[in-house]
Design a protein around this nucleic acid. Structure first.
Length: 259
DNA sequence: ATGCCAGGGATACCCTGA
């Protein structure tokens, strides 16, 4: 089974690219972030026409996440617990039956957190604390659990073309990375780093010729419970997608599993 | 220190992203 994540940066602007990717690669599950629409605005009929089930957790203008899957989900959960006042749509989780059991796929769009002297940075850190509590509970199930999406976190200097340029940024601040390590230390494996020690970027800014200069960062991740990590075969970063017409600034990252 | 570019929504010399 192949499970992918892609920050699509607006599903309405990217409908053509989304269809092309689904047709070319046929992932079993594709998790989207930044759909930037309410549920009713998602082109569900078109995607269902390609053989996918669609579950969305949308929001007007910003954020919004979705899970596309060839098999229907047994269960869908929307929203991150822990703060009833948080209205941002940044988490959707699906449970899927596989041979011999079930897998749980949790799709997140973790807050960016910039600028760090604004409310956005403490919101990011609090969101990560809520995520850690949520994942801790999920791991108690001791089942294949895949936490994937746009983490807005650069895990290590190797994950940036120019790490010095990111010093002080919310994506690379010590406070942010400390929480990322706390999350990983619950027992999650960074899938990409389980298969390669080489740089592999997933985001290139639209600005300043970042793509042309390969000035990228790795911020889209698949984090695996032990039961999922045991079944990991390979990870593919679909870098070519960044070169398509009217691309998103992120590219799809796909994990291949034996279930 | 700022804008670079892009999408959204309603058309704003505006907001957000990373």
């Amino acid at each position: 089974m192949r499970i992918a994540t892609w920050n699509i940066n607006g599903v309405k602007a990217r409908e053509g690219a989304l269809k092309q990717f689904l047709k070319e690669h046929q992932p079993d599950i594709l998790c989207l972030q930044e759909i930037k629409t309410v549920d009713e605005g998602f082109p569900a009929a078109e995607i269902e026409g390609l053989g996918y089930n669609v579950a969305t957790h949308g929001q007007k203008s910003w954020n919004g996440v979705a899970i596309l899957s060839k098999m229907p989900a047994d269960e869908i959960t929307r929203g991150l617990p822990g703060d009833d006042t948080d209205e941002q749509s940044r988490l959707i989780e699906g449970v899927f039956s596989v041979e011999g059991g079930a897998i749980r796929v949790c799709n997140i769009y973790l807050p960016n957190g910039n600028p760090v002297d604004s409310e956005k940075f403490p919101y990011k850190l609090r969101w990560m604390e809520r995520l850690i509590a949520f994942v801790e509970e999920r791991l108690e199930f001791e089942e294949p659990f895949i936490l994937l999406g746009d983490f807005n976190l650069i895990p290590a200097p190797i994950d940036a073309h120019d790490p010095d340029a990111w010093w002080g940024d919310a994506l690379f601040r010590p406070e942010s990375l400390e929480k990322f390590r706390a999350l990983a230390n619950l027992g999650l494996t960074d899938a990409l780093r389980a298969v390669t020690d080489e740089p592999a970027y997933t985001f290139w800014d639209f600005q300043a010729g970042a793509w042309r200069r390969n000035a990228g960062i790795r911020i889209d991740h698949l984090m695996l419970s032990p039961q999922a990590a045991d079944r990991l075969e390979n990870v593919t970063v679909h870098k070519d997608v960044r070169g398509w017409d009217k691309p998103s600034d992120h590219v799809p990252v796909e994990g291949e599993f034996t279930f």
